[in-house]
Amino acid sequence: MKRSLPLILAFLVGFVVILSEFIPHRPFNQIVSTLEQWFMIISGFAILLGQISLIRMNTHKIVNKLPDWQYYLAGLISFALMLIFGILWGMQETPGLLGSGEGISSWLGAKPFDYLFTNAYMPLSATLFSLLAFFIASAAYRAFIIRGLESNLLMITAVIVIIGRTSIGTMLTGWLPESMQFWHFPILADFIMEYPNSAAQRAILISAGLGIVGSSLRIILGIERSYLGGEK
């Protein structure tokens, strides 16, 4: 019962969704829109589950004084602050439990949630991702020293695209005569993006699509059961 009923549920739900594509009339279209709404609500709870799990994990580290516990405490405090601000005064145009907080908003220049978002979350997020610029440079160096045909293809394409999409590309090959315009960096970059890149992206999309159709069928037919977990 603990395993069979979920399998039957997954089969019924998946089957009705597929059937509604071929019979787009009542009651199937209504059932599918209801299922989609339910899906959103349940996924909201799933995200809540993730956040509770994060709190539990951090609390465990703090209570047991595991290495670096102070940082996890800072993480929990920032989580609580952002959550409380969001719930009490809302975000952007949405009011919270205490309304839009005109008083505190005029003092801070924005809602407390938005203030934290602009001055803490945004800079942290942008700087963390910008760090990758440095690590990508070292990754490129490592790819270069492999010196295989494939790695050369990768790096040459990357260089052409980078140069072709910036003003330096126009500057470097802008003097080329009309008959050699194809070798002008921006035009070459456009050609790569439009043809070989599209071809490979298409191959990836078709192959991944076939894989998704296959795994969806395995789930609906109950062959793939790993999502139920290992225990009986």
């Binding site: 603990k2 395993r3 009923l5 979920p6 399998l7 549920l9 997954a10 089969f11 019924l12 739900v13 998946g14 089957f15 009705v16 969704v17 597929i18 594509e21 299922l35 989609e36 339910w38 899906f39 349940i42 996924s43 709870f45 799933a46 999309l205 078709i206 991944a208 699509g209 076939l210 998704i212 159709v213 795994s215 969806s216 069928l217 789930i219 609906i220 999502y227 139920l228 977990g229």
Partner: peptide, 25 residues
């Protein structure tokens, strides 16, 4: 939790199968 997961997985599988069949294949 297997019951809500099975509904989510079933819905996703049905929708993905049709969507990817059309747009990606």
């Amino acid at each position: 939790s297997r019951y809500p997961i099975s509904i989510m997985i079933g819905t996703t599988a049905g929708i993905s199968m049709l969507r990817y069949m059309k747009s990606d294949i």
